[in-house]
Amino acid sequence: MGTVTSTTRRRFLVATIAASGAAASGLNLALISNASAWAEATDDASSDTAISLARLARLYYPHDKVADEVYLQTVDSILSAAASDPQLQEFLDDAYAALDAAGDQPFATLDPASQLAAMTKLQNEPFFTAIKVQLLLRFYVNRDVWKAINYPGSSVEHGGYVDRGFNDIDWLPEDGR
């Protein structure tokens, strides 16, 4: 991907924010259910970016049981990293431009099926994988995400699993139970 002008980037963001009300209310994949609440809480320029990216993050890893705030925490951490990582910032800029260019209107205003189609079209681009890696490294270490998928985290303080089911599998055909 080529370098993206700041104008293109701004277009992605502005379109995203403008569309957020509509996108949040009627769409099945409800990227961000309370985007306007976030916007109130964080009204600087970086929060626009964060909300846009958080919506994208939920498309990458859609978990109904995970709250919007967790996606926002994840992308805040990515944006902090990008501030001192020009390569990562370039991937993000590439993503903004390419996603907007992929459909017949700005990404944020597309319906969910068209958004997924745009992502599918771009999934082999370097920026797409780079963002995915950044997301999974940060998102799937989040305690709230662990809770949502029933991984309880550290067991040391509970004495491990020696008395708590490390060998309790009961559905194997040859287990004899």
Binding site: L59, Y61, L116, K132, V133, Y140, I149, N150, Y151
Partner: peptide
């Protein structure tokens, strides 16, 4: 492996990736 490593290994994105992680146990 921990959830992050499962996500890494399984690859992909979207519903299929999230569904895999929701079957973590």
């Amino acid at each position: 492996t921990d959830p992050m490593t499962v996500a890494w290994a399984v690859g992909g994105w979207g519903e299929s990736a999230a569904d895999y992680l929701e079957n973590y146990t």
